[in-house]
Design a binder for these strands. Structure first.
Lengths: 219, 219
DNA sequence: ATGTGTGAATTACTTCACAGCG
DNA sequence: CGCTGTGAAGTAATTCACACAT
C-alpha cells in the first residue's frame, strides 16, 4: 500500500500505537499528566519528535503543563480507529498460531480474533481461547459475513501467498504476516511483516562489527 | 544503540536479511542469476534501492547480467556475520515462548537456541524441541559459560525490564523483545521489538481513513 | 542490448529553537 | 517559568539517470 502525498508519514503512524501503549501504562499507574520529555524518555524518542508527530493531528497539550494522559490517549485511540473493536481472523494454527490465538493482549487492545482457520483436518474443532479451529474452506464465508478487513497469517512460507490471495479476494485490506516471505498484494492492501530471524540477523551484523573493532584495537 | 556517523545506515542493515532470505529461496528454486529488478519485485523494493544498498559493501554484480545468487547470498551472509552460528537464550516459556522454542526456522538460519528459561517452577524440566526449561536463576551461569550475546525475551511486560537487566549484566548485547514495553538498556546494547498489536493498530489507522474518504465521496 | 554502480537531485524525516500561552 | 506547537534548518534516505562493463 502506498502513501498519498501530503498524507501523514507512515513512520508517524507507526509510532502512534507506541505512544498509545505507553500512555495506557501511565494511565494504569495513575499518572494524570505527562510532558513530551517524560513520554519520550520512556519510549526512547525525542521530545520534539513526539510534539511534531502529535501536531499532525491537532493540539492536545497545554503549555507549561504537558499532556493530560487520559485525554491524549483517548485522542490517539480515536485517530487509530480504536474506538471500535476490530474483528480479525487468524489463519494457521501451528504452535505460533496457537500462541497468537491464546494471547489476551489482542482483545484488550481492540483486536478481536473472531475466527481461527487451518487446512490441517486433524486440527479442525480444536478449541483455542474463545475460538474453535475451522477449515480454510470456511474462510470466504466468514470473511464476508463479518465484513473482516484485517487478518493474521501464521502459516508456513509455502502456503502464505495462497492464503493471502484468498483473504484479499474476500475483502481483507490489512494483513499481519508472520510467514518469512514477502507476499504480493494489490496496492490497496496493507501488509505488515514479522520476521524475528531477520531482526536477529540485523543485530548479528552489528555484533560482528564490534568483534572486528576489538580485533583492530588489539594491533 | 546508536549509529556512529559514516556507518552503514540502519535501514540498510535491516534490509540485508530480507535480501538474504529472498536469495536463499531463489537458490532453492535453482535460480542462478538475478537482476536487481527481479529481486526488487519479489521483495517489494526498487531496483535502485537494492543496488545502492549493496554498493555500501562492495561490487557483487556483473553489468549486463545481474547477480549470481549463490555468490551474493554468501557475501550477505558473511556481512551479517552468519558464517558463524549464533547461540541465543530464550527467556519466557508461555505459549509464545514455547512456539519460539519449537520453531525450526531459527536454527536453519544461523540462530541456535541453546537455553530456555522461565521463573515458573512448574515449567522447569519441560522439554521444548532440543531444550529443557531451566530456572531463571541459572541464566547468569549459562550466559557466561557460553558467551551468549543475543537473547529473546518473551515474558510478560511487567517482567521484561528485570529480565533484560539480568541479560545485560551478563554480557548480552542484542535483545529481541516480544514484551509490549520499551525496555531501558545501556547504549551499547541493541534492542529490536516485536509488537503485533502495534502493527495492527498502524493498519487500523489507514482502514479508518478509507471509511472517511468513502463517506466523503458519498456527499 | 542489458543491467550494474554511483554521484547528483530529490524527497522524506528529524531536530532546532523560539514565540507564545497557561 | 515550563512546556507546547511549529516554521525553518539540518540530516538522512531514496530515486534518478547515465557512464561503463560484459
Amino acid at each position: 500500500m502506498d502513501i498519498s502525498p501530503n498524507a501523514i508519514p507512515d513512520v508517524v503512524v507507526r509510532r502512534l500505537p507506541i505512544y498509545a501503549r505507553s500512555l495506557s501504562y501511565l494511565a494504569e499507574e495513575g499518572v494524570r499528566s505527562v510532558s513530551s520529555q517524560e513520554l519520550g524518555e520512556r519510549i526512547g524518542v525525542t521530545a520534539a519528535q513526539i510534539r511534531k508527530d502529535l501536531s499532525y493531528f491537532g493540539e492536545f497539550g497545554k503549555q507549561g503543563i504537558g499532556y493530560n494522559v487520559e485525554y491524549l490517549l483517548g485522542h490517539i485511540r480515536r485517530i487509530l480507529g480504536l474506538h471500535e473493536v476490530w474483528p480479525v481472523v487468524l489463519v494457521g494454527v501451528g504452535p505460533l498460531g496457537q500462541a497468537i490465538a491464546r494471547y489476551e493482549g489482542f482483545r484488550t487492545r481492540g483486536i478481536d480474533i473472531i475466527g481461527v482457520f487451518d487446512n490441517d483436518t486433524s486440527k479442525i474443532g480444536l478449541q483455542l481461547g474463545r475460538n474453535t479451529v475451522q477449515p480454510d474452506s470456511d474462510l470466504p464465508k466468514i470473511l464476508q459475513e463479518h465484513n473482516i478487513r484485517l487478518a493474521i497469517v501464521a502459516v508456513p512460507a509455502v502456503r502464505a501467498q495462497e492464503v493471502v490471495d484468498v483473504l484479499v479476494q474476500n475483502g481483507v485490506q490489512g494483513i499481519l504476516n508472520y510467514a518469512p516471505i514477502v507476499v504480493q498484494t494489490p496496492d490497496n492492501v496493507w501488509v505488515r511483516h514479522i520476521d524475528p530471524v531477520a531482526l536477529l540477523h540485523s543485530m548479528t551484523y552489528y555484533l560482528s562489527r564490534e568483534d572486528e573493532h576489538h580485533a583492530m584495537n588489539e594491533h
